[in-house]
Amino acid sequence: MQQALERIAVPTLALLASAIAFGLLLAVYARVDPLETFALMYQGAFGTWFSWQNTLTRAAPLILTALCTALPARLGFIVIGNEGALVVGGVAGAAAGIATSGASPLVAQLAMAVAAMVMGGLWIALAGALRQWRGVNETISSLLLTYIAIALMNHFVEGPLRDPSSLNKPSTWPIGDANMIGTIPGTDVHWGLVFGIVACLLAWVVLRFTTWGFAMQVIGGNPKTARMMGLDVGRYVLLACAAGGAAAGLAGMVEVAAVHGRANASLAVGYGFAGILVSFLARHHPLAIIPVAVLLGGIGASGGLLQRRLDLPDAAVVVLQGIIFVAILASETLYGRLLPRKREG
């Protein structure tokens, strides 16, 4: 009970502290009224049905990319190559969509999703494999792989896969309107949100209720013990990395099939990097990813309103995100100390 209370109280305190710090910056440096700012942010993020849809649309890709960090993190691996997995997934998805453009939409969509997930999965599994068999640090290799992925995307989009009629915004051939996956009925929010939530639920079920999940917990707790128990650590590492990469790859496919209709440089706009933040804020817990992504999406959604009404620069919301992130991470230290607790056994 007290633990549950703490899980609410600690982040709330951290958010409150962030709000105060950000409010001070606004009041002292930018000379705007912090309360007015927060009211506007609420309005822009959650104040109306339109705002909610705006927030959820922005949250959708973050939920999927966050899994790319969260799943390997359960084994103690810090992967930050989310952006790269999203980008290669998007390009592979677009390529599959173009290749199957004659087929029925369902086949084309499935092909796109599978291609994107396989490509994204392989991309991050590569970082996992390099770690497992060559001892290459996965945090750094996945970061390098991201830069390589973006270069490859640019190469393909402006070279072999380029649609010559995409004049001033080089893009691949379109996947065709029929193959677009559209929005959730009654909303403007694309299906990526549903994919993300389902993926998080699935991850939670696997981690919580299956032997695989249990084995991952053991490995994450102590890899040496896991090896002594005869667990094939390498296989789990590859699986977790591949699953995470597949989630980010799917996010890329959603960008192509629900937003752009083709692959281009707009795939690499930072959804992957934001996903890293979401995962850490959610303490790599698949279910916690959803509300955290919504929070971050909401901050993003409200940024425009701050620019228009208060003449604040775009960077204002980045500062707020940074403060929140640091505050929540620092608040980890409060667990077990905030509330008097019965002695643990």
Binding site: F280, A315, G322, F325, V326, A330, E332, T333
Partner: peptide, 26 residues
Amino acid sequence: ICQLPRVNDIATGIGLMLFGTGLAFF
């Protein structure tokens, strides 16, 4: 911040990266 018990230094670093760039732009 990292000196506090149980705080992850990699994550804090990423947080401060965001904070630093945002503040610098601001």
